[in-house]
Design a protein around this nucleic acid. Structure first.
Length: 206
DNA sequence: ACCACGATGCACT
DNA sequence: GTGCATCGTGGTT
């Protein structure tokens, strides 16, 4: 069992462009606390949305009841329903007024203080945004949750045990979208089993 | 009020 | 590779 102490990333970590944050989150940890249980997940795949002029972003047409959180302070969770089934977990980036977010698409649970529910591989490898939210128990109840409050916050981001070398991070266009397909804003740890998409997409170097 | 469709994932062929 | 479950959102009527 790992002993993982870490300070949550401060708000200014997220007050940058979504692409920079998406890149820097690869190899970082997501910490989810519920009661006495704490789960640590290594982030291995992200996508950047928003900034200026991104037709694939929910912020593209200005704030709506769903997307207004993307226009607010950075470091806050944006959770929305996808295909009527899955939850997608984002963290808001950028400065107030310039909407942006990073979608969490892949992670591996590296430490948790509770019993595994099912076959270990199923519960540990969180491949795809729907599996990631389900495996960590994140739902719309966590929408608007501030991840920069304090080390006692329910969900926080913190640094990895060691830095990931830049040449181990791949970069491709984003998956599953029909607009803004040319933008290269998907980042992932090359070869990691929790990275979604085809094998080719999983070995393309940055 | 209506309706097309989506930042998906899984079962099945 | 194809089909489909399942529903909130937002653009349109």
């Amino acid at each position: 069992m790992l002993s993982m102490e870490c300070d949550p990333y401060p708000r200014h970590f997220f007050e940058r462009s979504p692409d920079v944050v998406a890149f820097d989150l690869i190899g970082s940890h997501l910490v989810v606390r519920r009661g006495s249980h704490t789960t640590y997940a290594l982030i291995v795949e992200t996508e950047a949305y928003g900034g200026s002029d991104d037709p694939a972003s929910h912020s593209f047409r200005g704030p709506t009841p769903r997307s207004e959180v993307m226009f607010g302070p950075a470091g806050v969770l944006y959770v929305y329903r996808s295909y009527g089934i899955h939850w997608c977990v984002n963290v808001v980036t950028g400065m107030v007024g310039l909407a942006g977010a990073v979608l969490l698409r892949g992670a591996e649970i590296v430490d948790r203080s509770e019993e595994l529910a099912g076959p270990e591989s199923d519960a540990v490898v969180l491949r795809g945004p729907g599996n990631l939210s389900r495996g960590l128990g994140i739902t719309d109840a966590d929408n608007h949750l501030d991840c920069c409050q304090s080390s006692q916050g329910r969900i926080a981001f913190c640094g990895g045990l060691q830095d990931v070398a830049r040449d181990r991070i791949g970069r491709t266009p984003r998956l599953g979208i029909s607009k803004g397909v040319e933008r290269v804003s998907r980042y992932f740890l090359i070869g990691h089993r929790a990275v979604s998409g085809s094998r080719i997409q999983n070995v393309t170097s940055a």
